[in-house]
């Protein structure tokens, strides 16, 4: 089946399981259309592998519209590929040239062990959230939504932090594999709202403690996470979390 006219060389990380070592394997792909998304190019390659009775490449993906946060590839050394502000699934082949060699690797971090090929285990994020990424309010106990006016600027800032899709590109990009941007986005989302202030002290302490326990690195403030974040989560959130953490620890 012909699609387009780009021919590429792919070097893709193959690893059968977390227990076995992996390596980069070279695959040529032909007739790629510039209108294809990067993951559709993977579909074409996988279709070829299946036709040769080989195991297709396993990679995480779901919504393919940049919101579920499932896709996770480091492409030519950059999380989610060469463009900023998008996820891997939103990357299109027109961002590459005919004849390019593209190296694709999984997120790499101690806290994100490889499950298979390009798929990693991001459950560390889940455990961090279970420690405090919520407001303790039971269903049905809420007062009328407009009883609590919230300044628009605060609501917007909270929204901007809440736009995080939990993909882990910040960890993948950070030279220290630090999860600060992710955790800070969660902490900030609540810290900025009066509903979240009630438990702010416990939240930041519990979430930071879990973050440390998961084996993420610390923050060097290089700012790489902010640049590679597909949702543009601001470094400002990290500063806010540091402040929250400091104040929380001064309190008791």
């Amino acid at each position: 089946m012909s699609h387009g006219n780009m021919n590429l060389t792919l070097k893709i990380w193959r690893q059968n399981s977390g227990k076995e070592p992996g390596q980069l394997v070279t695959y040529p792909v032909k007739d790629i259309s510039p209108d294809m998304s990067f993951l559709e190019m993977f579909d074409v390659l996988n279709e070829q592998l299946v036709s040769k009775n080989e195991n297709p490449i396993v990679f995480d993906h779901d919504c393919r519209e940049g919101i579920c946060g499932m896709c996770s590839m480091v492409i030519n050394g950059r999380a989610h590929g060469p463009k900023t502000g998008i996820t891997t699934c939103q990357l299109h082949m027109r961002s590459f040239k005919d004849g390019d060699t593209i190296v694709v690797e999984p997120w790499r971090a101690q806290a994100f062990p490889v499950i298979k090929d390009l798929t990693v285990d991001r459950s560390a994020f889940e455990r961090i959230q279970a420690k405090g990424g919520f407001v303790s309010v039971n269903t049905g106990t809420a007062q009328d939504a407009n009883c609590l006016p919230i300044p628009k600027d605060d609501a917007d800032a909270s929204f901007n932090a809440a736009a995080c899709i939990g993909c882990g590109a910040c960890v993948a990009t950070c030279k220290n594999a630090s999860a600060m941007l992710f955790v800070a986005a969660k902490v900030s989302q609540f810290a900025l709202l009066p509903q979240g202030r009630v438990e702010a002290t416990a939240r930041v302490k519990n979430m930071v403690a879990q973050m440390d326990a998961e084996g993420f690195g610390s923050c060097t403030n290089t700012g790489a996470c902010e640049v590679e974040c597909p949702k543009g989560i601001s470094l400002e959130n990290i500063a806010r979390m540091n402040r929250e953490f400091l104040v929380a620890n001064c309190k008791d």
């Binding site: 070097k11 030279k175 993420f216 690195g217 610390s218 290089t222």
Partner: peptide, 23 residues
């Protein structure tokens, strides 16, 4: 920080996202 990423990337392009001296 080093042990937070035991397996390094084959290719890593950090120059676009951060300053060399910050790293």
């Amino acid at each position: 920080n080093n042990s937070a990423r035991p397996e390094k990337y084959a290719v890593q392009n950090l120059a676009v996202s951060s300053k060399w001296y910050s790293r």
